[in-house]
């Protein structure tokens, strides 16, 4: 009789859970998705600006994890970094494919907060910020999302994007320069209010 597979403990490490996943341990995926699905979904949503597409990317990311599990190396990148790298690249692929079919400008209106009719100031700022971020070139936006929103270090973002840390800093600086230019009226208003 086959021994019963042990449920993963809550404090099991990510690496341990991935190895259990490879062994067919029941419950490993539930624990892993509980830990990482929110940030994978958030990353996809910020890059794509569309919840349904972000959910597709999140699911595909975990499908890739399942395939990767048998050859998972515990001395490789941390699971969170690996997942967000996969998700980011899936998002970039989608953006590029989408741009071929429906050239820019595009996805900002997919964010769900426009159905309220007139936008008050707070909503107007949020909309302007999302629109400005959505208009960034793919890699600039991905670097910004990873470092500013997902808490990646420059080095982790570099690994995720397959570039050097210096290149990530350049992507970030260009992204922020472009955002500052686009959002300058809001920044000026902000400074006026503060002063």
């Amino acid at each position: 009789m086959e021994p019963a597979r042990q449920q993963p403990a809550a404090e099991e490490t990510d690496d341990g859970l991935v190895l259990r996943l490879a062994d067919g341990c029941d419950g490993a995926m539930a624990t892993l998705s509980g830990r990482h699905l929110p940030s994978v979904l958030a990353c996809g949503w910020r890059i794509l600006g569309d919840r349904a597409e972000a959910e597709d990317v999140a699911q595909e990311t975990f499908v890739r994890l399942l395939r990767k599990a048998p050859e998972w190396r515990t001395d490789g990148p941390a699971l969170r970094s690996w997942l967000l790298r996969v998700a980011t690249n899936l998002c970039i692929d989608r953006r590029r494919a989408r741009a071929r079919l429906a050239p820019m400008p595009e996805n900002i209106d997919r964010f769900e907060d426009r159905e309220n009719g007139s936008l008050d100031d707070d909503l107007a700022i949020r909309h302007a910020v999302r629109k400005a971020v959505a208009a960034l070139p793919d890699r600039q936006r991905a670097a910004l999302v990873l470092v500013h929103f997902q808490g990646f270090s420059g080095q982790e973002a570099a690994s995720a994007l397959g570039v050097s840390t210096e290149a990530v800093e350049s992507l970030l600086a260009r992204a922020r320069r472009r955002l500052r230019k686009t959002l300058s009226p809001h920044i000026e208003n902000l400074l006026e209010v503060r002063s």
Binding site: P38, R126, H148, F149
Partner: peptide
């Protein structure tokens, strides 16, 4: 301003 981007959806 970037902090006004808004919270992402929960799964």
């Amino acid at each position: 301003l970037l902090s006004r981007f808004g919270a992402p959806p929960a799964p």
